[in-house]
């Protein structure tokens, strides 16, 4: 497969009855095999951009091409066979088991009628294994801890056997160990050739794993590129309106926000 996975031109989105564009002209290209992290303050348009990439929102202006074809024109099941998504929030209305929950990832492959075959079972069990929820199969998803549930959701996305994985703040509710192991897993997937796009507020962890950062502010891309280029003191201080220090750890720039009194000196 050649050419970009996602390609947007002059992408604009404004929510009805609001005065400001949530996304105000974004040109973004994501290539196969890249590990991209979208960064930016709250309300900078990260999630809106993501939902347009996934064809869940129709752009007000401009367009999103997924593999050369407008995202909104793809049949949903065809899209879902290629793109796995771990969305920001998800509320389960009725109790189902983890096994059933992960098996939903096979929907785009099975449709409404087809029964699970050996390949489907292998994908489900493999995904559960990889995300460490293999032992939770018969538990109700509602009983899981935040970390377990997040891993089950990732397992569901992996059961789709996607070439592209999109995650919206996947570690927001996780402790250090869970957060690190999730990013380790994402790095492994990238090594296997999977394209990963992740929205996160954890700049430092993004800087250590993602090869490419995209910093958004006010619905626009401020800067993009490798962490060393994006995580620059004056840019970050402008975007986040907070004094920061940049340090290098294992060759990756790490952002340390200053305490107020230190900044005032």
């Amino acid at each position: 497969m050649t050419g970009p996975v996602f390609d947007t031109k002059g992408l604009v989105f404004r929510y009805p009855a609001t005065l400001r564009d949530a996304v105000a002209g974004i040109d973004l290209r994501v290539n196969q095999g890249e590990f991209t992290a979208l960064l930016g303050p709250n309300g900078s348009g990260k999630s809106t951009l993501l939902r347009m990439l996934l064809g869940a929102l129709r752009p007000t202006c401009g367009e999103v091409l997924f593999r050369g074809r407008p995202a909104g024109e793809w049949p949903r099941d065809e899209l879902a066979r290629q793109v796995g998504v771990v969305a920001q929030a998800e509320e389960i209305a009725f109790p189902i088991t983890v096994r059933e929950f992960v098996a939903m990832g096979r929907y785009p492959h099975l449709g409404a009628w087809r029964r699970e075959g050996p390949a489907d079972r292998a994908a489900i069990l493999g995904a559960m294994d990889r995300c460490g929820v293999a032992d939770l199969g018969q538990r109700s998803v509602m009983e899981l801890s935040g970390g377990e549930r997040q891993r089950a959701r990732l397992a569901r996305a992996l059961a789709q056997e996607p070439r592209i994985l999109v995650l919206d703040e996947p570690t927001a509710a996780l402790d250090i160990a869970h957060e690190m192991s999730l990013f380790e897993l994402l790095a492994d997937l990238v090594d296997d050739g999977v394209t990963v796009v992740v929205v996160t507020h954890n700049i430092n962890i993004a800087a250590r794993y993602a090869r490419r950062l995209v910093l958004l502010d006010g619905g626009r891309i401020v800067v993009e590129g490798p962490p060393s280029r994006v995580l620059e003191k004056s840019t970050l201080e402008t975007v986040y309106q907070w004094p920061v220090r940049i340090r290098l750890e294992d060759g990756a720039p790490q952002v340390v926000p200053e305490k107020r009194d230190a900044a005032e000196e």
Binding site: V85, A87, E90, A93, Y107
Partner: peptide, 11 residues
């Protein structure tokens, strides 16, 4: 049962 948007993303 797990949400409109998730269902959409699952195809």
């Amino acid at each position: 049962a797990i949400g409109d948007e998730t269902a959409l993303f699952l195809g």
